[in-house]
Write a protein that binds this DNA or RNA. Sequence first.
DNA 1: CTCAGTGTTCAGTG
DNA 2: TCACTGAACACTGA
Length: 264
Amino acid sequence: MPELPEVEAARRRAERYLQGRRIAALSAVSDPIVFEGTSPRRLASLRGREIAAVRRRGKHLWMELDRAPHVLFHFGMAGGFRLGPASEPRPRFWKLDLVAEGGRRLVFTDPRRLGRVRLRRDPEGEAPLAGLGFDVLDALPRVADLAVILARHGAPVKATLLDQSLFAGVGNWIADEVLYQAGLDPRRPASSLSREEVGRLRSRLRDIVRRAVAVDADSTRFPRTWLFHRRWGRKLGAHTPRGEPIHFLTVGGRTTAWVPTRQR
DNA sequence: CTCAGTGTTCAGTG
DNA sequence: TCACTGAACACTGA
C-alpha cells in the first residue's frame, strides 16, 4: 500500500515508537534481492546504535542512527512495518526484525520481495534518494515552476506524475485521484496543460496528499467524494457518486481509472 | 489455472 | 544523448 501517505504514516509510527532507543537485536532473513548490497551479518552489527530519528523523502524512509551507516527502506508494492512487543511471534513474510530497548519491536515485512533495505552513509546524498525530485508533501514547487517543469515533458500527464525524479511520492492511486479532481484527461501530454490547468493540478495534488497524511493514510477516512473508493477491482459498471461511468485503461504502463465525462 | 497489482528498473525504440 | 515505452522482476490472492 505504499505511496507517500502510507510511508509517512509508517514513519510517524516508527519514530514515535523507537526514537531515542538503542537497537538491542537486529535479525534479517537471507535475501540478496531485498537486502541490496548488505547481509544479515552486517545488519546484526548495528546492535547498540541509537535510533536518532526516522526520516522520509518521497516513498523512501530511513532510520537515522547515532552514526553512519543509516538504514534505508523502500516498501515496493507490498512492504510495510509492523510494530509491537518483542514477545509476539514474527509475522508472515518477515524480512527484518529489529528489537529495541524496552522490548519494542519493528518488523519489516514484504510478501512480494519488491521492497528494498539498504545501508547508506549519507542517505540523501547517494542513490537512490539523490535521484528523486521534489517531495510532494514537503517541497511542492510554486505554480510557475511547476508549469516550467511540465512544459518540458511530452509524455502523458499521468506518466509524468508517476516520475519519481519529478514528483517524489506520487503513486498510481494519487495520480488518478489528482487528475480526476483536477478534471484532466490522463493521456494529455504534460506539456499541453495551460497555466490554469497546472494550477488546478497543483492544488488538487497538495490537498489530496495533505488530507491522506492527516488521517494517517487510513483510506476509510478519505473523503467520500474521492475516486479512490470506487476504483478497485475494475468493477464493470463502476460509477462516481454522481452516476458518471468510470473507465479503465493503461497509461504509462499502469492501470488508470478515469471519468471521461469529467476529465478533458 | 490465469491474471492483476498503491513500484522500480532497464533494454529497446525513435 | 534524450525522451519515452513496455517488459521484467517476484509473489499473493482473487
